[in-house]
Amino acid sequence: MIRLNVFIRVKEEKREAVLVAAKELVTASQKDKGCIAYDVFESATRHDVLMICETWKDAEALSAHEHTPHFMTLVPQIEELAEMKIEKFEF
């Protein structure tokens, strides 16, 4: 399995737009083949930090996800509005 923790740092004026795009990404991605878990979290202590936590069956499923229309549309939208940092774990 593969787990990605995607940390998103966003300015207050862009936070709502990022959250809307992230929620849309989550909803679509949960339907992707090989998706075990996919969710977005808001920090309880830092209003400028969100995190998408995703778990995939294998590298093939993750690669297929990265080529879906929702990924190729929404991720660049989020990247335009915020900073993203990705942690990847394989287990």
Rank of each mutant, 00 (worst) to 15 (best):
N5G: 09
N5R: 14
V6T: 10
F7A: 11
I8G: 00
R9T: 13
K11A: 13
K14N: 15
R15V: 07
R15D: 08
R15N: 10
E16N: 13
E16G: 07
E16W: 11
V18Y: 02
V18C: 11
L19Q: 10
V20Y: 04
A21V: 01
E24G: 00
E24K: 12
L25E: 02
A28N: 11
A28W: 03
A28Y: 07
S29G: 06
S29C: 05
Q30L: 15
K31D: 06
D32K: 08
K33I: 12
G34P: 05
G34D: 04
C35M: 07
C35N: 14
I36T: 05
Y38W: 02
F41W: 11
S43Y: 12
A44Y: 11
A44D: 12
A44P: 03
H47T: 09
D48H: 06
D48F: 02
V49D: 09
L50H: 03
L50G: 02
M51F: 03
M51W: 02
I52L: 10
I52K: 00
T55I: 13
W56F: 07
K57Q: 15
A59S: 08
E60W: 02
S63P: 01
S63L: 08
S63K: 14
A64D: 09
H65V: 10
E66H: 09
H67I: 08
P69H: 08
P69A: 08
H70D: 03
H70F: 02
F71R: 03
F71D: 01
M72Y: 04
L74S: 00
Q77M: 12
I78E: 00
I78R: 00
E79P: 02
E79K: 15
E80H: 09
L81R: 11
A82Y: 01
K88N: 07
